[in-house]
Simulated assay, not measured.
Amino acid sequence: MRTVDYAIGRNSLAVLMTDSINFGDTETGQCKARFTIKKVPYCIRFNPNEDKQHLFVAGAVNALEFVDQNRRFVSTSDDKSMRVWEWGIPVDFKYIADPSMHFMPAIKLSPNGKWLACQSMDNKICILNVLNRFKYMRKKLFTGHMVADYGCLPGFSPDMSYVISGDADGKLYVWDWKTTKLYTKFKAHDDVCATLLWHPHET
């Protein structure tokens, strides 16, 4: 099931519609621009750089995440592939497709910018090394949860001690980053636990 995505920039809000992107002012609520596109977009992200907050990227992909100090961004798609793009260049910089890879509907960059956590539909969180040409870390897997076709967003503790994720049964899982062993799990919701954030100060 697809959900409507949106992105918030400095004083701006971009909302995905069926065949367009509405770009509005968060202070006045006024729509400043509407962009008509040929394909249905599923994801949208503003460029996080302060001087590029008026620019965004959107696409008919499953996930988007800025990496490498916002010089590049990563996209995942239904064909089980991942692409790395240079900002401002409309050709993929790197194409990642491995027979062992599965559909990855949610990805998250680590707080230190070194690792990319990918929620895989074989009920695993896979890790890629952003600084080493997006090397797939085959031994760095986090398992035990059941995502069952949901794009449950993975996450990290600010100090990089733990990896976290919700699952289709409404549970929240916490793994030890170094050992990849399950640290704890508990019931968070009656329905799917799709999105979570670790508090940046109460670590």
Rank of each mutant, 00 (worst) to 15 (best):
P99W: 06
I96K: 08
Y162F: 14
P99S: 11
D167F: 03
L131H: 14
A106M: 07
D98R: 12
C152Y: 03
M101G: 04
G166F: 09
E86S: 12
G166H: 06
I127F: 03
S100P: 09
K80E: 03
K135E: 13
S100C: 11
K124M: 08
F156V: 09
S165F: 02
K108H: 04
S100E: 15
G88I: 02
L109V: 08
P111H: 00
M146E: 13
M146K: 05
N132Q: 15
E86G: 04
S157V: 04
M101T: 10
N132M: 01
F142Y: 15
V91Y: 12
P99D: 12
S120C: 06
D92A: 11
L116N: 09
M104A: 10
S157P: 03
E86L: 11
G113Y: 13
M137W: 00
P154C: 03
V84T: 06
L116W: 09
F142P: 10
S110L: 06
F156T: 08
D167P: 01
N132D: 13
S165L: 07
I127M: 12
L116I: 07
K135W: 12
L153A: 11
M82V: 13
G166A: 09
I164Q: 08
I164L: 13
M146C: 13
V163A: 05
S81C: 12
P154D: 08
G113R: 12
Y150W: 15
K140N: 04
K140F: 00
V147R: 02
S110R: 01
F134G: 01
F142I: 07
Q119G: 00
P111C: 07
D167R: 07
M104G: 01
L109P: 07
R83D: 08
G144H: 11
M121F: 12
C126Q: 09
G144F: 07
S110A: 03
D149T: 11
F93R: 00
K139Q: 15
M101C: 06
C152N: 08
A97R: 14
V163D: 02
G155Q: 03
T143M: 08
Y150I: 11
A148D: 14
D159I: 03
Y150D: 09
G166R: 02
I125C: 06
E86A: 12
D159N: 11
C126Y: 15
A117P: 02
L116M: 10
N123Q: 02
S100A: 14
M82S: 02
K114Y: 11
D159T: 11
G151H: 04
L141V: 14
L109M: 04
